[in-house]
Design a protein around this nucleic acid. Structure first.
Ligand SMILES: [Zn+2]
Ligand SMILES: [Zn+2]
Ligand SMILES: [Zn+2]
Ligand SMILES: [Zn+2]
Ligand SMILES: [Zn+2]
Ligand SMILES: [Zn+2]
Length: 113
DNA sequence: GAGTTTGAAACT
DNA sequence: CAGTTTCAAACTC
């Protein structure tokens, strides 16, 4: 009943890769427009296997995308965008999307954020 | 709503 | 690690 809830529209990933924002956030798809969804609560074996595979590739894949300096000093890994064309001034940029400035961790080009 | 752009995620 | 491809959201019209 919260019409503001974000929904995905994945067509190829079955909502089992980080391409899917629901899966990436650890949320079950609900009200989404995805096709052949396996992130629906009824395929937990597949979902847990996918989480495991992705964690093997990148152990902090499910860590928060934006990490402040305080949490960074506590050892949390900071990411950083690699934008080339958006000048980090559109939501294509995860830093801009999160409302934070780019940092020295970013490898963006012609950054205006 | 359809088509394009973008860069993270995935793959090789 | 670097180069390439895939993907779905952001954006444009
Ligand atoms: Zn999805
Ligand atoms: Zn979803
Ligand atoms: Zn789904
Ligand atoms: Zn950026
Ligand atoms: Zn950035
Ligand atoms: Zn930037």
């Amino acid at each position: 009943s919260d019409s503001r809830k974000k929904v995905c529209s994945c067509k190829k990933s079955r909502c089992l890769k980080l391409y899917c924002e629901c899966f990436a956030a650890g949320e079950i798809c609900s009200g989404c427009k995805c096709v052949d969804c396996a992130n629906d609560g009824d395929h937990e074996d597949m979902r847990l296997q996918a989480v495991d595979t992705i964690k093997q590739r990148n152990n902090n894949a499910f860590a928060p995308k934006i990490v402040d300096e305080i949490q960074q000093d506590k050892g949390m890994h900071a990411r950083g965008c690699r934008c080339k064309k958006s000048h980090c001034l559109k939501k294509y940029c995860e830093c801009y999307q999160a409302g934070v400035q780019c940092t020295d961790k970013c490898k963006c080009e012609e950054c205006q954020n």
